[in-house]
Structures are given as C-alpha cells and as structure tokens.
C-alpha cells in the first residue's frame, strides 16, 4: 500500500454501506422519546427568546405606571410587574441573556478544557502528572465561593461573569479529555498515523480530536444547565445581570420579593427556567446514551 492511498483514509474507514457514528447516534437519539421532545422544546424556547423580543410590541424596559401588577390576561400575557413592565417581554429577554451566558461560558470552558486535557494526555509522563496535579489542586478550591467573591469585589461585570464561570467549569472537561486522549493514544490507528510520519499537530487535530468529541459534547450539554444555574444563583444574590436588563435568575429574584402581591412574577420566570433546565438535562442524558452506548447505564 502506498503512502498516498493510506493518506486518503485519514479517518477510520467506514465499511461500505455502513452508517457513520453520528448517523447511528442520531437514530438512537430519535428512538429516545424524552430526549427528542426535549430537543424540540429546547429549539422552541431558543427561537422564542431569539425572535420573540424582535416581534413583540412591548419592550422589556417600557414602563407603564398606570398599569402595575396587572394579572396575566389579554393585555399582557404574563401580567406586569411593579413598574408596569410586560412580564412576557421580560421573560423572553431574560431567557436570551440566560441562554447566552449558558452557551458562551460553556464554550469558554470547552476551549480551555479540551486544549488543556489534550495537551496533558498527549504529552503524558511527568508533564501530564504535573498538569493533572494543578487540576487536582484547583478542584479542591471552594470555587463557588471564589466566583461570588470575584463578583462582589470587582463589580458586576458581564465579561467577568463569563471568565469566572468558565474558570470553574473547565476542570471536569480537562479531566474527561485527558482520559480519552490517553486511551486513544494507545490505539492502533494513532500508531499507524505516527508511523506514517504525520506531525504531532496533524495527529492531534485530525485523528484524536474527532474521536473524543462524543464524550465532550455530552459533557458540554450538561454543562450548559449547570452554568445557567450558577448565573442564576449570582443574579439571585444581586451579583449577576443588572437592571433594567434581566436574566431568568434576576427575574426570579424580583418575583420572590413581590410574590405575595403578584405570584405570577415568580411563577413564569421560574417555569421557563426550570423547564429549560429539565429539557437540557434530558437531552444530555439522551445524547450520552446515543453517543456512548457503553456508559449508558449511569
């Protein structure tokens, strides 16, 4: 076999007429009713929060002091708050911020975690031991406390929020990636790639990276709700998103202060937030079963 023909089969070759890992996974995911419903629900919520505020006539910050604490009805679907702002518009706008924080912070942690884990696993030996020791030390830090501290001390900065949350969440990602890389490194197709004289970066990016995406995607799906929860905790403590902007966390906080007069103020944001978390968790579970059948029993 010439080198040229081997090069053309960069990935694990598929047997003719077979289906790829991703297609298999998609079929398995579709077989899971709960995960499928969650996926559609999540797409629905995302579209609602992305497009909703553009279409709605009422804005999240328009006040109407003649119409405060209006109960849900025809005028405003979810009622209004103490300043007469339309709750429906605020919930949709809040969802935008919550989801954006969830996805962006997860992306930050994904980038750091995968890069760190792959480097550590691929290098192996003393460097690996050292890099994982650092992760172990960071793991035992009381990180929620540090995030709160960071937000209190340096003000409620939106960018700081991403950094703080991303810094917490990359550790597990790094561990998972490193474990995968370590075991992939032993695989024969990696050995073959090395024997063919491919550079380290080519082996890392074309051979190892695509093969560890499965567990990483599963974990990322489960990180998004975790991040959204952390953002909500910070917003609830008054350290996250600031008025008149809103996230689901800050809406729930406002709602909990006024729930005796207007229960809908906590009910609707709480409902949207919980349902979204529920859908993301079910989706993550379904993805794990679909992408990694071996680990499905957890």
């Amino acid at each position: 076999m010439s080198i040229e023909s081997a090069k053309s089969k960069d990935f694990i070759s598929e047997d003719p007429g077979g289906s790829s890992l991703w297609k298999d996974a998609w079929i398995r995911l579709r077989a899971n009713r709960l995960a499928t419903i969650s996926l559609y629900f999540f797409i629905f919520i995302s579209l609602l929060t992305i497009l909703g505020p553009e279409i709605l006539t009422s804005s999240y910050e328009d006040q109407d002091l003649n119409n405060t604490f209006a109960p849900p009805g025809k005028e405003s679907l979810f009622g209004t708050d103490n300043l007469g702002r339309d709750l429906f518009a605020r919930v949709l706008h809040g969802g935008r911020i919550s989801l954006a924080v969830g996805f962006l912070a997860t992306a930050v942690s994904l980038l750091i975690g995968v890069a760190y884990g792959m480097t550590s696993g691929y290098l192996g030996g003393k460097m690996d031991a050292l890099m994982m020791r650092v992760v172990d030390i960071l793991y035992s830090l009381p990180f929620t406390i540090f995030v709160i501290l960071l937000m209190v001390l340096f003000g409620r900065n939106f960018i700081l929020l991403f950094i703080a949350i991303g810094a917490v969440e990359w550790l597990t990602m790094a561990r998972i990636t490193r474990g995968q890389t370590l075991s992939l490194k032993q695989a024969e197709f990696i050995e073959a790639a090395r024997a063919l004289g491919y550079s380290h970066s080519r082996v890392l990016f074309r051979h190892i990276l695509p093969n560890l995406l499965g567990p990483v995607i599963v974990y990322a799906t489960l990180t998004v709700p975790a991040v959204m929860l952390l953002e909500a905790v910070l917003s609830f403590l008054g350290l996250g998103v600031q008025a008149p902007m809103s996230s689901w966390g800050s809406l729930i906080k406002e709602g909990s202060e006024k729930m005796e007069i207007a229960p809908w103020l906590i009910f609707f944001p709480g409902l949207f937030f919980s349902l979204t978390l529920l859908a993301l968790n079910f989706l993550g579970d379904g993805l794990r079963d679909a992408l990694d059948p071996k680990a499905a029993k957890d």
Binding site: V233, G249, S256, M259, P263, G270, L275, N281
Partner: peptide, 22 residues
C-alpha cells in the same frame, strides 16, 4: 427527581414560603 433537580432552591424556597406561610 429530575424536576427536583431542575427546580432550583431559589425557585423552590419562595414557592414553599408562598404556599405554607403566605
């Protein structure tokens, strides 16, 4: 159980207050 996990404490807490004390 899934509902319990997704209903965070800061939603559950106020709801319990609303129900049992208010």
């Amino acid at each position: 159980a899934m509902l319990g996990i997704c209903l965070p404490t800061f939603v559950m807490g106020p709801l319990l207050i609303l129900l049992f004390s208010s």
